Simulated assay, not measured.
Amino acid sequence: MTEFFNNIDLDAFWLNILVGGFFFILSIPLAIIIIPYYTIRRLKRKNKKFIVRKVSSVIQEICEFLNASPFKDKELNKHQLAIYTSKEDLKNYRFIGLINLNVFNQITFPKIVLVVAEKIQGLPIDDGFELIKNEKNRIMLLREKLEKIIEIHSLHIDEKTISNISEVCLEIRSFEITFEYNYGIDDLIEKGLTKRNGIFGIMDLAKLHEKILILFKSLLIPKDFETEITLNE
């Protein structure tokens, strides 16, 4: 053993240590950044068909919600927007949905806030309360559908889209809680001791419609989808 250490080539030994250390350090970013990046990229390409299908499901749910909306306006609804998957993938090319709103027109977002707020505030209080109550039930159902989609199919939806959908779902839940304050005087109303003199959550609901439209637009921007805008006759 002593003879082995006496005959060892220290220069070659330290050279091997330096070279090995250099390649070890060089491999760290490769293992941490480059390999995972290309692995995830490859998985996304492989799952592209599923990603498009799952995002299409979200788009269709929002289309259904918007088309059943009681908040209509001649200016707001003068355009019709048809949505398709990209023609670049002709094999899977298909129609997704149709709405009477042009989310690519920036005026649509502040306009929907005004239409919702003015519609409710323009009604007698009891009628306005019934309208916002029905809308609360509709928007709560939308939240449940969106949460189910991202819960079951999150592996096939990118993180940014999941984050955007989750944020809207949280805003809807916040509105639901705020709306419950409307029931605070129901006992007194039933006894005839008071009348409803205001409605909680009108502007929250109006802003929610704007946020849903912003989410809807963000889903259409990727090149996986194409749109066609026409004037309503």
Rank of each mutant, 00 (worst) to 15 (best):
I17G: 01
V19T: 13
V19E: 00
L26Y: 10
L26N: 01
P29M: 04
P29F: 07
A31G: 09
I33G: 06
I35N: 09
R42D: 05
K49C: 00
I51E: 13
V55E: 15
Q60N: 04
Q60V: 10
E61Y: 07
C63N: 15
A68R: 13
A68S: 14
K72E: 10
E75C: 00
L76D: 04
L81P: 04
A82F: 09
Y84M: 12
K91W: 00
I99R: 03
V103W: 02
N105M: 03
N105K: 12
Q106N: 11
I112G: 01
I112V: 15
A117M: 03
D126L: 11
D127F: 03
I132Q: 04
N134W: 00
I139K: 00
L142F: 02
E147Y: 02
I150S: 07
I150W: 06
I152R: 14
L155V: 05
N164S: 15
E167H: 13
C169V: 15
L170K: 14
R173P: 00
S174A: 13
I177M: 07
F179E: 08
E180H: 05
Y181T: 07
Y181W: 04
N182F: 09
Y183Q: 07
Y183D: 07
I185C: 03
D186P: 02
L193H: 05
L193N: 03
T194A: 11
R196K: 14
G201M: 04
M203Q: 14
L205E: 06
L213T: 06
L213Y: 07
L213W: 02
K217Y: 11
P222S: 10
D224M: 09
F225N: 06
T227M: 02
E228G: 01
N232P: 00
E233Q: 12
